[in-house]
Design a protein around this nucleic acid. Structure first.
Ligand SMILES: [Zn+2]
Ligand SMILES: [Zn+2]
Ligand SMILES: [Zn+2]
Ligand SMILES: [Zn+2]
Lengths: 156, 156
DNA sequence: ACGTTACACGTTACAAGATAACATTTCAGC
DNA sequence: GCTGAAATGTTATCTTGTAACGTGTAACGT
């Protein structure tokens, strides 16, 4: 179900979309109406969105859109770093910090289901160095931590 | 396809299984023939194994086993930390370092597909501290990094 | 203007991954 | 032997993701 609450203010939302426009222009890619609509849907979500829920939300009177529609749009957005896939949830989120192409860190609340995109400072560097000692060259790192968010901790 | 090569020597394999026996005894859980067989299958794999490939490998003349069979065994093994799920691959591996229940780090080679379980030292601690500053209490962390393993780097 | 190419998007069909619900077996403890 | 809990078997279904091919459209060189 695609909810009514919003994770971002209207101002933040338009900032994110404007930022996406700028990035696409810079890269010579086009943020078509469909892609833009999917990005907006993602931004409006209070938390990670499932592909088939997005499909339903995209749909018209003619019924929900077909799977390739949404997966292609998501692939595009992810290629530019405008959206991320949360592997442990099979769900997608709009990038909250500005087009991370290589590595992402999410803190996922077990209680409310929200996913907070996070900048871990040195954690990534340390991991890269540790892996290098082992001969492994990291290209991309995905970190998904689960636990309790600040709000849910207060509530409990 | 479940291959013929082995990621572990026979000695390592029996050590891992013996370790699993010990852990189950300690926890009052039982490593039934089925669960043990699935663990052995995982250990024999050269890399992450897909659930349906394990099913086929489990199968008898009566055809492949049914999905719940393998998913239940995997759930058990994962609950004890004897197996891990690699989210970005929808695949499973035997634990290589001894029953990690809370957090795992994998280095996944884009070229050969192998997944190396890894101990990242301070990376996890740093992440936990950084998240705590944000009010988030981490319970479990999953890290999946992709890149080139030492072998594939040499080959290239 | 015309064909060509590249790209986005539509549509159908299917593959792959996972679980719900209920039946059956097994075996320890009474 | 009976009973209850845990493990396993079985059927059906659900969710998630892709392959393959067709259609529309705009830019490009001729
Ligand atoms: Zn991001
Ligand atoms: Zn929460
Ligand atoms: Zn482990
Ligand atoms: Zn490799």
């Amino acid at each position: 179900m695609i909810g009514m609450t919003h994770a971002h203010t209207a101002m933040e939302r338009s900032r994110l979309v404007a930022e996406a426009e700028r990035l696409c222009a810079e890269r010579g890619e086009s943020l078509t109406p469909l892609r833009r609509r999917v990005l907006e849907l993602l931004i409006e979500q209070p938390g990670p969105a499932k592909a088939y829920d997005l499909l339903a939300a995209l749909g018209s009177e003619a019924g929900p859109a077909k799977p390739p529609t949404i997966y292609r749009a998501l692939e595009f957005l992810m290629r530019l770093g405008l959206a991320h896939r949360i592997e442990s949830l099979n769900a997608f989120v709009a990038c909250d910090v500005g087009a991370c192409a290589r590595s992402t860190i999410f803190l996922i609340c077990d209680n409310c289901g929200r996913a907070e995109e996070f900048d871990a400072g040195h954690a990534l560097v340390d991991l890269g160095e540790a892996a290098a000692k082992d001969g492994f060259e990291i290209r991309r790192t995905m970190i998904e931590a689960t636990g309790l968010c600040a709000d849910c901790r207060k509530a409990a």
